[in-house]
């Protein structure tokens, strides 16, 4: 769970803030939230990270947090038996699908909101697959469903998709805190974070914020170079490998004699 020091600091801050957050007595709820960071810098050393999201609500209720990354393209491959061998048999390119999709809440979402409301607010894993494009498109509906199911299963297994009804902790009915744990493989771009204040099967308030995920430094430069000016990159990199080889030969050769 969360680092206890961070939690204590956070609670102290919120406790000080709470008296100033005196909301007018009204049925419409309000949310005040912030995050420990709005940026994730992906460097060669990045192997996953976590961001603490916390805030206060005007009326006691439950919290749902949705995190959605920009879309990306994935390749789903299926192996099958050919004679004695297990070989790649089917390959689908799945595009327009968010690379990361989290639904974190303080209670199971189906117990908080009716189905129609969940669908309207996009609070369902099915929402992530709404715009999905599969190439080549399987002819049969059952085969299409299998592709969807497998993509979803594998993304969950990698922790890129996550539905956790215990992730949000509610403290003293007015404060909430959750940790957004990010896996090592992340799509880049601006992640939309939406916080919902929910009570009696209704969404009382929402708040939107963002996490900016960027590659930084040398690796970003290399990634861009290798993909956007691939010929130039190939030429320069190969030439530098040759020079490095010559250099190593000279250095190590000299040491030997």
């Amino acid at each position: 769970m969360m680092n206890s020091l961070a939690k204590r600091l956070l609670l102290a801050t919120l406790a000080m803030l709470a008296p100033s957050l005196v909301w007018a007595q009204s049925s419409s709820g309000e949310l005040v939230s912030d995050m420990s960071s709005h940026h994730v810098a992906i460097s060669a050393r990045y192997v996953g990270g976590s961001i603490i999201l916390f805030g206060a609500m005007s009326i006691p209720g439950q919290i749902i947090v949705k995190v959605r990354s920009p879309d990306q393209s994935l390749a789903l491959q299926k192996k099958g038996r050919t004679g004695p061998f297990w070989l790649a048999q089917e390959k689908y390119t799945v595009s327009a699908i968010p690379g990361l999709y989290y639904l974190l809440s303080s209670a199971p979402i189906d117990s908080l909101l009716p189905k129609a409301m969940r669908e309207a607010q996009g609070l369902d894993l099915g929402d992530a697959l709404k715009g999905i494009k599969v190439m080549p498109t399987p002819r049969e509906a059952s085969a299409r469903r299998t592709v969807f199911e497998q993509v979803l299963r594998l993304l969950k297994a990698r922790h890129n998709y996550n539905v956790d009804p215990k992730a949000v902790e509610i403290i003293g009915q007015r404060l909430y805190v959750t940790t957004i744990r990010l896996p090592s493989q992340l799509p880049l771009g601006k992640y939309a974070v939406t916080i919902y204040l929910v009570k009696d099967g209704k969404v009382l308030a929402t708040q939107n914020t963002e996490i900016d995920v960027n590659e930084v430094g040398l690796e970003q430069w290399l990634f861009n170079a290798a993909n956007q000016s691939s010929w130039y990159f190939g030429l320069v990199f190969t030439a530098s490998m040759m020079l490095l080889g010559l250099f190593l030969g000279v250095v190590l050769g000299r040491k030997k004699t």
Binding site: S73, L76, Q77, K79, R81, F85, W86
Partner: peptide, 15 residues
């Protein structure tokens, strides 16, 4: 390639 893979499906970034 002779042993059945643990998972016949695999997912990678599309190139």
């Amino acid at each position: 390639i002779l042993i059945r893979p643990e998972d016949v499906y695999s997912l990678a970034l599309a190139r």
